[in-house]
């Protein structure tokens, strides 16, 4: 099939440039590597960084899965998947286990990823310190000096005000005992999955033009204090479709009186779980 574009849209020189940055990022886990991000035919903030990373590493034999909020059929996930179908003519899947390459926004699949897989995160803001220090000139210095007092004070203040850290998503992690890293807006529920993950984790921020990486089997620790250890979300309810009590649940309003139900955010997991339980 002729697409009218180079394989995966970007020209080969650009893909090579991005792959070099990815290699550098893998060598310095958690370090934000500036790269010459290109404009993509998708709006900034809608996954342009993730798309560029995916486009640079995808091959003809790859099987791609794209999720947004854990689901394969959300509009933006569908739109990105269609983009790659159009410019790569490759196979796609909804099944986490079948995919060789997974691009995601805001979730890590519930199914454990393996060493033959790569997960690409879409990153809106790569700088975990940005809300605390708006200037890039300053935050780069803070990382260089491993000067993270700002962040620890912030977490401490939350505990003193609310009794616990109130960050529920994009909960900061420390990668390989060195860089504080933004895990992207995944729920903190997913943070433990990043630790020692068998799969390679790549992060692309298009608008901010940064790439970072967490190589397989790397220590990723969610920031906490000895007397206030890190905790993930829990629900009293279970999934109303598959009955799972172990997955991240979305809350849905099912009538005008505001009655609510809970269902798995990971649609593939929910489906597999339902089949298994039958």
């Amino acid at each position: 099939m002729k697409t009218g574009f180079n394989f995966a849209y970007l020209d080969e020189a650009t893909k090579r440039m991005i792959r070099r940055k990815i290699l550098k990022a893998v060598c310095i886990p958690g370090y934000q590597c500036p790269f010459g991000g290109r404009e993509m035919p998708l709006a900034y903030g809608w996954g342009t960084g993730g798309i560029q990373v995916t486009a640079s590493i995808i091959g003809k034999q790859d099987i791609l899965k794209v999720i947004d909020q854990g689901a394969d059929d959300t509009t933006n996930a569908v739109s990105i998947k269609n983009f790659f179908k159009r410019v790569c003519n490759i196979m796609t899947t909804d099944r986490t286990a079948e995919a060789s390459l997974i691009q995601t926004r805001h979730r890590i699949p519930e199914t454990t990823l393996n060493k033959d897989q790569i997960i690409v995160y879409q990153v809106p803001q790569p700088e975990p310190l940005r809300k605390l220090e708006p200037k890039e000139k300053e935050t780069r210095k803070l990382h260089a000096y491993k000067e993270y007092a700002l962040m620890h004070v912030k977490l401490y203040e939350e505990i003193s005000q609310f009794g616990s850290v109130i960050k529920t998503w994009a909960y900061p992690v420390e990668t390989n005992n060195r860089y504080i890293t933004d895990p992207t807006p995944i729920p903190k529920f997913d943070n433990p999955k990043m630790n020692n993950m068998e799969a390679l984790q790549l992060f692309g921020a298009g608008r901010e033009k940064r790439i970072y990486a967490i190589p397989p089997y790397t220590k990723v620790k969610s920031l906490d204090f000895d007397d206030h250890p890190f905790e993930i979300q829990t629900w009293d309810e279970c999934c109303s479709i598959c009955g799972s009590t172990k997955s991240y649940l979305d809350e849905i309003i099912i009538n005008n009186e505001g009655k609510k139900n809970f269902i798995c955010s990971d649609t593939d997991f929910c489906k597999s779980n339902l089949e298994k339980n039958k």
């Binding site: 709006a43 900034y44 909020q69 729920p187 991240y248 979305d250």
Partner: peptide, 23 residues
Amino acid sequence: VEAQGFVTHLKLPHYVDFQGELN
């Protein structure tokens, strides 16, 4: 191009994150 993209991305679903806040 950057500004409109990032501002309008707020239209994209954020219910996973919102669920965290609700919780």
